[in-house]
């Protein structure tokens, strides 16, 4: 059955479950509670909710102040705005000042489809990863999102979490969702090609492995939800066992997962690394799925690139 629950809703559910007991959990929005699926939190926990209006710099600065005073703020705003409009607040007030702010980037990548480049966040992984002391997570499905938020609730460091707008097909099941903090999840192991993906690209990566299997090509698939700190050991192990490495991300071709994986692979076990990503150009107009199909960011597209890389 097709999943109808977006990852952002799971974040709200987990925070609501904990907010009953933990009064230090605060949720902040910048006129974004609806699009962040956080309206139920605001309704159920008005004293733990902060609306700042359309002011992302204020959003992140206030969150940092709350954290400094011992609160556990979750600041949610479209990924494009929270990472670039308030980039300096993320850098100075969160990471540099070492405050426990969890930055939730909603509707990441090309989730907003036809709304254009202003609303797309194809730079957020690069931007946030370049900040010392900032962690970057892109959960792949609703089950993993739950585990990730549960884990983040237990620590006291800042982090950026990017989710998409739409429900995504499950990668895991409720019963079977292996999760270790800051360790990639190995979805399958093969000896020809290693496919390393993050966020919404993990499901197509897994689909690609199935297509490749039918062609007699065996693939490793890594769910690298922890883009920073990157699970270097998992990258090296997967690359060592393969003839080529494919990275897949809903991001600019520069400075994201592909760049980071290429650095690790070239240093440790040189292999051909093919990066499948959005173009360094305004993205074609369309729904997320249409955009992914156009740029080959689907099971078929990834499988095709992987097969080519082995030739």
């Amino acid at each position: 059955m097709k999943n109808s629950i977006p990852n952002r809703k799971v974040i709200c559910d987990v925070l609501m479950e904990h907010a009953k007991e933990d009064k230090e959990i605060m949720v902040l929005c910048s006129d974004s509670r609806g699009s962040a699926s956080l309206a139920p939190f605001f309704e159920a926990f008005p004293d733990q909710s902060v609306e700042v209006g359309i002011a992302e710099q204020d959003l992140v600065g206030i969150a940092a102040g709350l954290a400094k005073a011992g609160m556990k703020p979750y600041a949610a705003s479209p990924a494009s705005f929270i990472t670039t409009r308030s980039y300096e607040q993320c850098k100075v007030d969160c990471a540099y000042s070492d405050t426990n702010v969890k930055l939730i980037g909603i509707s990441g990548g090309v989730s907003y489809g036809a709304l254009g480049m202003s609303h797309h966040s194809a730079q957020d992984i690069a931007a946030m990863s370049a900040i010392p002391n900032m962690r970057v997570y892109l959960p792949s499905d609703r089950h993993q999102t739950r585990y990730l938020i549960e884990a983040l609730l237990k620590d006291n460091k800042c982090a950026y979490i990017r989710t998409g707008r739409n429900p995504v097909e499950d990668v895991y099941t409720e019963e079977n969702c292996p999760f270790e903090m800051d360790r990639a999840t190995v979805l399958c192991e093969g000896s020809d090609v290693a496919i390393i993906a993050c966020g919404e690209m993990v499901r197509p990566a897994l689909d690609a492995a199935q297509i490749l299997k039918e062609q007699g090509i065996s693939a490793t698939v890594l769910d690298m939800y922890c883009v920073k700190p990157l699970d270097r050991a998992a990258v090296i192990k997967a690359a060592e066992n393969a003839k080529a490495v494919i990275t897949v991300e809903e991001h600019s071709p520069f400075g994201g997962l592909g760049s980071m994986v290429a650095q690790v692979v070239s240093e440790n076990c040189p292999r051909k690394v093919i990066n499948i990503a959005l173009p360094d150009a305004p993205v074609v107009t369309g729904t997320s799925q249409e955009v992914f199909e156009y740029y080959g960011m689907t099971g078929e597209g990834i499988a095709q690139k992987a097969a080519q890389a082995l030739k």
Binding site: Q57, G61, I62, G65, K68, M71, V92
Partner: peptide, 24 residues
């Protein structure tokens, strides 16, 4: 308490601190 240098950061952070004090 907090790092600064780039201007225009302190007041929003202070709002967060004051808000936390009020909440508590």
């Amino acid at each position: 308490e907090m790092n600064s240098g780039s201007l225009g950061h302190g007041l929003p952070v202070a709002v967060g601190l004051a808000l936390a004090a009020k909440k508590r």
